[in-house]
């Protein structure tokens, strides 16, 4: 097979498009880490639950899939609040390993609860634009993918405004820098944690709805995106938003170039090899600060 320049350019385009989907998930994870210094490995399971919820809402009520995502977003955000209160808050500040254990427990619970409710059948959310695509020279892009990119950019912009321009954002930033000082300054840290987790869960929910429209999904779908999102933010440095975007694009492109030149089975192996190399050279990621 001869690989031509257009093929490589297309591959880079796919890499960017794929990276975009994961950036949204990664941002939520990253926010939670930035503010709470906590990693929720069960983040992808919120994506999975949101995909199922969006599917159920749009099938049961005949609602437009994109509107259904908003409903699902609210439900998942509330769920996130519950999860934070009942589980993570209780292990915060103890051994770091406990976060891994709690996350694993949550993964088992979410996946199997979803399996009991929705069964093992794969599903896909039908959007009003399914099957339609915009034809460009040499390639065509589905409307759903274009909407996904727009939604991701909009969500990230709204998120940026929230963090930079609002009072809550200020409080969140203060908490992320030094939570004891923030507490002394009269910030209700527990409330900030709650809001942070809710926003993180909501971002995962949006990602889940988009995922369910673009791809098909079942109860096990959360695992892979979480791992990829983790790899992305770890590469970029935990807590660094800039790093998450660079990491996301880097991951997407590395995976797709490996797929092109070595074959699809090498995709994530090469992406993880890249992750390992980055971490061995810089143990706190590309943009990570020297911690603790």
């Amino acid at each position: 097979m001869d690989i031509t320049a257009p093929t490589i350019i297309l591959t880079l385009v796919w890499g960017v498009a794929i990276g975009c989907v994961y950036i949204l998930l990664a941002t939520g994870l990253n926010l939670i880490f930035g503010v709470m210094k906590l990693v929720n490995f069960a983040h992808g399971q919120l994506l999975m639950l949101s995909a199922f919820l969006t599917w159920t809402i749009s099938v049961a009520s005949g609602m437009n899939a994109y509107l259904a995502i908003i409903v699902s977003m609210i439900v998942v955000a509330l769920l996130g609040v519950g999860v934070e209160r009942l589980t993570f808050r209780r292990v915060l500040g103890t051994d770091k390993l406990n976060e891994i254990f709690v996350s694993l427990g949550l993964i088992y619970i979410f996946e199997n609860a979803a399996m009991l409710i929705w069964g093992p059948q794969p599903k896909q959310i039908v959007s009003p634009f399914s099957g339609m695509s915009l034809a460009l020279p040499g390639v065509s892009i589905t409307y759903d993918r274009i909407i996904a990119v727009v939604v991701v950019v909009a969500a990230l912009a709204a998120f940026g405004v929230l963090i930079k321009k609002t009072k809550i954002g200020l409080a969140m930033r203060a908490t992320s820098q030094r939570n004891t000082t923030a507490m002394l300054m009269g910030i209700n840290v527990e409330k900030i944690y709650m809001i942070t987790f809710a926003i993180g869960a909501a971002l995962a929910a949006v990602a889940g709805g988009l995922y369910g429209i673009i791809f098909s999904f079942d109860y096990q779908v959360g695992a892979m995106p979480t791992i990829i999102a983790f790899a992305i933010i770890i590469m970029g440095g935990l807590g660094s938003i800039k790093g998450a975007i660079v990491g996301g694009l880097l991951y997407g492109i590395a995976e797709q170039l490996a797929t092109l030149f070595l074959g699809g089975i090498w995709g994530s192996a090469v992406a993880f090899a890249l992750l390992i190399v980055v971490l061995v050279i810089r143990p706190n990621g590309i943009f990570g600060e020297k911690g603790e």
């Binding site: 297309l10 591959t11 796919w14 890499g15 498009a17 794929i18 791809f215 098909s216 892979m224 995976e255 797709q256 797929t259 092109l260 074959g263 699809g264 089975i265 995709g267 994530s268």
Partner: peptide, 13 residues
């Protein structure tokens, strides 16, 4: 061409 069983992105292949 073969690909990983876990992937959902087949565009490059």
């Amino acid at each position: 061409r073969s690909y990983e069983t876990t992937t959902t992105n087949y565009q490059t292949d």
